[in-house]
């Protein structure tokens, strides 16, 4: 077993892992952070998406030890000082979630996009979310949510 030290949502964590442990297992089974979901365990669906050093990754196929010393953000880490992130507000307002199973991953993928590209086109938003599957919404209201959040964030800045 190896000791994995990394930061999750701003908090330093230390857990014992072995060579096969995935980041998703660490988050769910050891730290009891259950917002990243086990949808496929093969990297195909995106429900396990988290941010690692600000970049979108699939935690189900991320070897836990490769997170050593890194900063991981799950959706629990998005709200600041009790204020929801504009993306969370926008997904709520625009019905970007139906069953909710893909939602945490979808919002984190959206955050990764807006961090890099604060004013995406609809096409760019679709491209950024292309690895996050949703079976309920048909994606329309998800893309609406991302666009609304981008606009809201731009207004808040100006």
């Amino acid at each position: 077993m190896y000791s994995l030290e990394f930061t999750v949502n701003g908090q330093l964590c230390q857990v014992a892992v072995d060579l096969k442990t995935t980041l998703l297992e660490v988050l769910r089974d050891k730290l009891f952070i259950t917002s990243p979901k086990v949808g496929c365990n093969t990297g195909d669906c995106g429900t396990c998406s988290v941010l690692m050093n600000g970049k979108l990754v699939r935690s189900c196929i991320t070897n836990a030890l490769s997170a050593q010393g890194k900063e991981v953000t799950t959706i629990e880490g998005l709200a600041e000082a009790g204020e929801l992130h504009p993306l969370q507000e926008a997904f709520h307002d625009n019905y970007g979630a139906q069953c909710g199973f893909c939602t945490p991953g979808m919002i984190l993928a959206s955050k990764a996009l807006l961090d890099e590209n604060p004013k995406p086109t609809r096409e760019e938003a679709k491209e950024a979310l292309s690895g996050n599957l949703c079976r309920c919404t048909g994606y329309g209201k998800i893309i609406d949510s991302v666009m609304a959040a981008a606009e809201q964030m731009a207004q808040a800045k100006s």
């Binding site: 019905y95 139906q98 079976r135 309920c136 919404t137 048909g138 994606y139 329309g140 209201k141």
Partner: peptide, 9 residues
């Protein structure tokens, strides 16, 4: 609309 779009996809 959510049902229409989801079913459409």
């Amino acid at each position: 609309e959510g049902q229409i779009e989801g079913g459409g996809a």
